[in-house]
Nucleic acid binder design. Structure first.
Length: 355
DNA sequence: AAGGTCACCAACCGCAGCTCA
DNA sequence: TTGAGCTGCGGTTGGTGACCT
């Protein structure tokens, strides 16, 4: 049974905020700070639900927010982080001073996804489309029975050859992440993975081939990460690193990996880290970052938000990683992926053959 | 000029984790 | 231990303005 929207219960106001409401919120918060958001609207004289107030404050009114356009530097950082951790917007936003998860998410969905596709890169996997096609070809080549698996490559190729929008099959749905695709798969402990009903083994939907292909692509990608996580070597990654990520992880992560511990590898994607590996390694060595000393990802980040909320006038209290491609956070992550990624084509083969 | 389409982004939804009585 | 309330989060929706036909 669906939970009724909380704001509906009391017939509270919804929709865009007025200047008057903003002024009330600002006045209240500057005087009392935040906390106990359910009480805020009543105390501030607003006919809004607490959740709405919290969002308005967090995403718009907070004094430490930047409202100008994203810079090229921020853009690159978002892309790198997305490649590393997927759509963990709150974590990504914490690395961009003055940006909210909503900002980053919107920017990704409206600008960066398209930009990556224009560059011939799949925004979900961060791999070149050509490589995805090649991988599909390999997978399809294993099928001798002429079943659905064997037709993937052909279908995908057909989709790519469409003149109007070669990437349409990737853009016809809303943002999809590997993490989101994971629940489609059998539990991780399953020794005999099989594709979900609505993906590789499903009947082709003649009227909606693009969506069918997308689902298949998700399943493949998911399978890759599933397979890769079996080679996970916990000694390679700092426990702190995982605990921080895990503790702030979204529901899909917790759901998908249970009962196994969360694995950073679930989100590791190859393409973003193939360039400059050696330089990165040297840099990392120079900085003294080892697998055991790599900084935890968000040790300060929760306090960052809290500081911003609890001390509305105290911008100076907000601690944030510097916006820099060589921030410790990025260093830490870029250092992780390199040595933990997998030989995925072989693993795909193994998974497919064993299913 | 009018209608349609697209892009952007603020706001909402619902789930899950956390806290505390 | 448990359940209610609060909060954080990612995904999604819908309003609005710009652009196109």
């Amino acid at each position: 049974m669906m939970r009724p929207p909380s704001c509906d219960k009391l017939q509270l106001k919804r929709g865009p905020w007025t200047e008057e409401e903003d002024a009330k919120m600002l006045a209240y918060v500057s005087k009392h700070g935040t906390g106990n958001w359910t009480a805020v609207p009543k105390r501030a004289g607003l006919k809004r639900c607490g959740k709405s107030c919290r969002l308005r404050w967090t995403n718009y009114l907070r004094p430490d927010l930047k409202h100008e356009s994203f810079t090229a530097q921020e853009e690159e950082l978002i892309i790198k982080l997305h490649a590393a951790i997927g759509s963990r917007w709150s974590i990504i936003a914490q690395q961009l001073h003055g940006r909210t998860d909503n900002d980053v998410k919107n920017y990704w969905n409206t600008k960066l996804r398209r930009k990556l596709m224009d560059r011939g890169i799949d925004p979900v996997t961060h791999k070149p489309f050509s490589q995805i096609l090649a991988d599909y070809g390999n997978i399809g080549g294993f099928s001798r029975s002429g079943n659905r698996n064997g037709s993937i490559y052909k279908d995908l190729k057909t989709a790519f050859m469409r003149k109007a929008d070669p990437y349409a099959f990737l853009t016809t749905t809303t943002t999809t992440t590997i993490a989101a695709a994971r629940p489609l798969l059998p539990p991780p402990q399953s020794t005999s993975p099989s594709f979900p009903n609505n993906s590789l083994s499903s009947k082709s939907n003649a009227g909606n081939n693009s969506l069918d292909l997308l689902t298949q692509l998700q399943a493949i990608t998911t399978l890759v990460t599933e397979a890769s996580s079996r080679n996970y070597n916990p000694e390679q990654i700092s426990p702190d690193f995982f605990s921080q990520i895990s503790s702030s992880s979204s529901s899909d992560v917790a759901q998908a990996v249970s009962p196994e511990p969360f694995s950073w590898r679930d989100f590791l994607l190859e393409e973003a880290f193939t360039q400059g590996d050696h330089a990165q390694e040297e840099k990392e060595t120079h900085l003294g970052i080892s697998s055991n000393t790599r900084p935890a990802i968000t040790a300060h980040n929760k306090s960052q938000t809290i500081a911003g909320v609890d001390h509305p006038e105290g911008n100076g209290q907000i601690e944030s990683a510097p916006l820099s491609s060589d921030s410790s956070f990025v260093e830490a992550m870029l250092g992780q992926e390199r040595d933990t990624f997998m030989d995925f084509p072989d693993l795909i083969m193994e998974e497919l053959l064993s299913s």
